[in-house]
Design a protein around this nucleic acid. Sequence first.
DNA 1: AAATGCGTCAACCGCACGCTA
DNA 2: GTAGCGTGCGGTTGACGCATT
Length: 254
Amino acid sequence: MGRKGNCENEVMNRGAWSAEESKILIDYVQLHGEGNWSELSKRAGLKRSGKSSRLRWLNYLKPDIKRGNISSDEEDLIIRLHNLLGNRWSLIAGRLPGRTDNEIKNYWNGHLRKKIDQKHNHRKSRVEFEFEFEYKGRTINSLDVNNSTKSSPLHAANDAMNNVVITGHNPNPFASTPQDGHDNFSTGLDICDQLIVPHEDFHFNNECASVEIPKNLIDEAFGFDEYSIGQAWHESWKLVDFFPTDQVANYFSL
DNA sequence: AAATGCGTCAACCGCACGCTA
DNA sequence: GTAGCGTGCGGTTGACGCATT
């Protein structure tokens, strides 16, 4: 603790913030407002970089921030949002009032990741049958999904609880980086990983099965105002047709 | 009691982006 | 067009505390 850094010939404090420093920052921001952090740091007399001050304020000192005790509802939401958005912590945090990206990121890495891993492994062991699907080659809302159409990106299987579990094909869902565009599609499939649909909701018709994903399954957790691709997924999930592996003959209907 | 391992989390770093001159 | 700056983001680090050996 108390490491010293050097910035613009001035010795800067680094490491954990003292109570005194925090108080100086709180007082200053409450008086003068946020923004222009490097200048703010100097004016407040803090031997801290602007970045450090900004981080300290936004993640820990801001009055409306909740700390700790992430509820099961919040946890559930984090999992769903992560499935949709990948590691875009700030967006996830934006949907959890009072939570910060840093806290959610830490919570994910410290608690949820293991939990999800265990769940995945458990689920894999229970697969009894598989369907495969193809995705109708189509550009969704200007996103390039050409590469995704060449394989069968989805699997559905029934688990021991007699639910139908729809899973994505992404071999490494935790490494999803939707920012790079082409990966949006596979990240979208991660949503599927989350969808567990009661067996009785499926309508079986000879060798085909269809299901209408309840709107609230998706809507309750995700507001798609910011992500048109999300809306597209939503639309695509309204009705999904399933066919046995050896009869891949149909596609999602958008 | 000491050493070691491990989990947690605050803070830092590098990079990208947007704005402005 | 571009350089400089501020800001935001995600990945990573490292200090700390607790549990285990």
